[in-house]
Design a protein around this nucleic acid. Structure first.
Lengths: 222, 222
DNA sequence: TTATAGTTTTGACTGTCGGTCATTAATTGA
DNA sequence: TCAATTAATGACCGACAGTCAAAACTATAA
């Protein structure tokens, strides 16, 4: 279906606002942004922001949605590779790491996600629904890889793939979250003692859970 | 050294304010709290809050510090058990889970920690230093357990205990964070399909990384 | 007990920011 | 060319974190 010029312009304007907000978050940090600065950066009046977004949180949510789409796209591509399931999981891990390194802004906003959808109004919005759907899709990629691995014998099938998927997803986020902040030189004295790179931590993590879920016939009894 | 009555009263008053803030966070959620409500709850004038704390964030940081102390205390007790290192790690995991379930407020505030110490002024404060020190201490408990496990042979010593410690710490936070929010019925449609309890997810996680770091002689070559 | 100096507490006030809406500008269609 | 409709704007509002001059309280001395 063809969009009218007006509809196209409207969408373009909306994207422009999201771009502006992303840039500002990148430059100033997510806690130092005001609606006025976003409006200035996007070269529109403040009121215009509210023609496209219900609230400031809603702009962040839109950024989050955009990020999720990108991540899912990358996940989709990773899953196309002809690899045993266990390797696919590792591939997804590396994909996630790469995404975070290349798109720190999205990762920053993802970490805000909770406070966003704690807003009851916003949680009901169509935008929030799309975000939830994206998250579900990302989960599905992981579960698929696990199922493939259980099929081809590379992953131990004593786990429920859905449950294991959640565990892996949560754990990955946690590890990358911690390592990411070290990289950003935000605080984290814990990590000062030890000087490991984001890469190194994630590799170790992947190896750790890779070993944990591998289907080692000999260790079926534990 | 003995404290004067004044000093004792000052400390008590400070604790009272922290108590009030904790209660409010529990009842209203951390995003719905104002300095005025904290003042009312603590039965002091708003200005008094600022005699004890530099800012609102600083109150949250104080709550965070109190939580860290409690958690470290629990970790310390867990480490006293006479168990092989691998079991100690599992014990720490369960301890952490129990802590989060019994003290959701602290967990909520922990998740705010980043935005707190992104505040440059606050990051320099003595309070922030104590928080960092607490985090380091928690890390140390994990590393100790790992070292014990590598000594007694229950944990594979191919990992660097410090690096592995960070991975485990980050991953645990991630898993519990995700599961915790499901429990709170906050959003998280991803988790609706599957109905796993916090307990169940954490058990799976512990088993997963437990297997991953176990010293299975036969699988030294991977 | 009262006067005085010092200390603590307070809440009215200020600046900032998210969000609104009456007004203005632009676009459309006749 | 001129309404009529739609889009954009920024002055304004309420809420809230943080401040500070004044009030209340305490301790000490006469």
């Amino acid at each position: 279906m063809k969009l009218t010029r007006k509809e196209r312009e409207r969408i373009a304007r909306r994207e422009l606002i999201i771009d502006a907000a992303e840039n500002l978050i990148d430059r100033l940090g997510i806690d130092n942004i005001t609606m006025d600065t976003i409006a200035t950066e996007a070269e529109v009046g403040k009121g215009t922001l509210y023609l496209h977004f219900k609230s400031k949180k809603s702009i962040y949510l839109a950024i989050s949605e955009r990020g999720s789409r990108l991540l899912n796209h990358a996940f989709g591509k990773a899953l196309l590779k002809e690899l045993p399931g266990l390797k696919l999981i590792e591939e997804l891990g590396r994909t996630y790491l790469k995404f975070v390194q290349e798109n720190p802004v999205y990762f920053t906003v993802f970490n805000y996600y909770e406070s966003l959808i704690n807003d009851d109004d916003l949680a009901q919005s169509e935008l929030a629904q799309r975000c939830e759907e994206s998250a579900r899709e990302a989960m599905t990629y992981i579960v698929r890889a696990l199922q493939i691995g259980m099929q081809d014998g590379s992953i131990n099938n004593k786990y429920d793939p859905h449950e294991l998927g959640i565990v892996i997803w949560g754990a990955s986020r946690g590890v990358i979250h911690m390592a990411f902040h070290k990289q950003k030189k935000h605080h984290m004295k814990i990590l000062d003692d030890v000087n490991f790179s984001l890469q190194s931590l994630v590799s170790n993590f992947i190896e750790l859970i890779g070993t944990g879920m591998a289907n080692d016939q000999r260790s079926k009894n534990n």
